[in-house]
Write a protein that binds this DNA or RNA. Structure first.
Length: 473
RNA sequence: GCGCCUCUAGCUCAAUUGGCAGAGCAUCGGACUCUUAAUCCGCAGGUUCUGGGUUCGAGUCCCAGGGGGCGCACCA
């Protein structure tokens, strides 16, 4: 058997799913006379002596292999196959007397040998570390893992089609940024040798996408891998995927409608319903979603009645009462945001738009048209988690410069996530950015919602892990 | 970074109070012409994560270190 040469190519005539769909209704014990060619991995083997039954799995499903000694070439070698071996099989579609749709082998070839031992064929792999490190094993022994990543692929594809249909243009902006911007986060730093400059892996594509609106792309988006040098948790991976999109002539209310409609569409396409189970509870993504301001929610959920004009001492007292750490440079807006995040955000279960944020914590958002000190910004919270962050964009270059300078003061005061002045971005605004609204949506968390996974590592094929020890040798 | 939990054969898991380190599956050898996690018989498989300590005796108790999980914190 080890002498059997491995072919350079193999051409199946059917996927296993196609065979199941076409022939599942035939009678027990019947033969179709139809020859098919299939390929896949041998997942189970039942050796009866003169007959061997196998279970072949490809990416579409499973089918039984039926191999009687009399009609199977190289029968002894077939008997010696290992679980996990890849096979190419030619044979007739039949149904056994016991009613199992099968391919009766007339020709077969081994396409790869599984030299490492097969995981437990019933329990699979339960060790999460091994599932993440050896995803190539997890994927073929754990059906739920396969499903999760098929859903992820489907979601991204649906988003692309939906945006394309509404006139959005997909673009690719730089991953290397000379200045990190567009979000408040610690960046990864790398170095370009030929230019002899440090570059930052992007923490958000935002400022480049808005440059493109200046350039005339009125509806633009990017599905962007972004990188943040922060801790790992069930909700955080150092690299993750964001959908960011910008729409000229729109404000944040347009974006809210887009989000609730998109989410409803995705749920219907993926799950067939807008009602989904997450953890122990269920929730409904059906549009429209509730809208409420941060101050309203603070009063509703925590009985905290404050405004930006509330004396700082009072806000600080409330923070210490709710064990929110306070730093000297925090203004009233930051204090209110901290209070909201500590007391309200994780309590919000059903989809909700938390509308209007303090200007102090929103350096890229446009002043609220009615409420001084606030900006037109919202986050959608679903199942206690932030799904997206969006705003009516700040378009005035002078105001943007002031906001950047404010950020530099924050940085000087010790906030190492604060932004720095991006002169080229300011220059682009000086050429004119029309009224524009934009959004960033965490794709990983969106997929978690639709698959019911509670750990971000379960929706990332190869999550960031500490390098494995003792692997060489 | 802090707290709690966890680590035993390739995989899934046992091991009473501190008293001979085991089972199923996989692998290997054998039996079996309709199985469905096939079944049956047999062989082999171990630095119990690592290093110390207590003890006549440690998988088990103690200390230190490592991997992993969860929670907190930071963030999305």
């Amino acid at each position: 058997m080890t002498g059997m040469p491995i072919p350079y190519r193999f051409e199946p005539s059917h996927t296993i799913q196609q065979i199941q769909d076409t022939y599942s209704e035939i009678e027990d014990g019947s033969e179709t006379g139809t020859q098919v060619i299939v390929a896949g991995r041998l997942m189970l083997k039942r050796d009866q002596g003169k007959i061997v039954f196998g279970t072949l799995q490809d990416s579409s499903g499973r089918v039984q292999l039926f191999a009687p000694e009399k009609t199977t070439p190289d029968f002894n070698e077939f008997t010696d196959l290992h679980l996990g071996d890849w096979l190419g099989v030619t044979g007739e579609v039949i149904k056994t007397r016991r009613g199992e749709l099968s391919v009766k082998i007339s020709e077969w070839v081994r396409l790869a040998e599984a030299r490492r031992p097969f995981p437990d064929k019933w329990h699979g792999i339960s060790d999460t570390d091994m599932r993440y490190r050896q995803r190539y094993v997890d994927l073929w022994v754990t059906e739920e893992t396969r499903q999760t990543f098929l859903v992820r692929s489907q979601v991204i594809s649906l988003i692309r089609r939906w945006l394309e249909k509404t006139g959005f243009v997909e673009v690719e902006t730089p991953v290397f940024h000379p200045i990190p911007g567009g979000a408040l986060a610690r960046p990864f730093i790398t170095h370009h040798n030929a230019l002899d400059i440090d570059l930052y892996l992007r923490i958000a594509p935002e400022l480049y996408l808005k440059r493109l609106v200046v350039g005339g792309f009125e509806k633009v988006y990017e599905i962007a891998r972004v990188f943040r040098n922060e801790g790992l948790s069930t909700r955080h991976n150092p690299e993750f995927t964001m959908l960011e999109l910008y729409q000229a002539y729109a404000d944040y209310t347009d974006i809210m409608e887009m989000v609730e409609n998109l989410m409803e569409h995705l749920a219907l396409e993926v799950l067939g319903t807008t009602v989904l189970n997450y953890g122990e509870r269920s929730l409904d993504l059906k549009a429209p979603w509730r809208r409420a301001t941060m101050l309203e929610l603070l009063e509703e959920y925590a009985d905290i009645k404050v405004t930006l004009d509330t004396p700082r001492s009072e806000l600080v007292d409330l923070c210490s009462k709710h064990s929110v750490p306070v730093k000297d440079h925090y203004g009233p807006g930051k204090l209110i945001l901290e209070l909201y995040e500590k007391t309200v955000e994780h309590e919000l279960w059903d989809p909700i738009f938390v509308v209007d944020y303090p200007k102090e914590v929103s350096p890229l958002s446009r002043d609220h048209r009615e409420n001084p000190g606030w900006v037109e910004r919202f986050e959608a919270i679903v199942a206690g988690r932030e799904l997206c962050n969006a705003f009516t964009e700040l378009i005035d270059p002078d105001e943007q410069r002031l906001r950047f300078l404010g950020q530099e003061e924050e940085k000087a005061a010790g906030d190492d996530e604060a932004m720095v002045v991006d002169e080229d971005y300011l220059r682009s605004l000086e050429y004119g950015l029309p009224p524009t609204a934009g959004i960033g949506i965490g794709i990983d968390r969106l997929v978690m919602l639709l698959t019911g996974d509670t750990a971000i590592r379960d929706v990332i094929l190869f999550p960031t892990l500490r390098p494995e020890q003792g692997l060489s040798e």
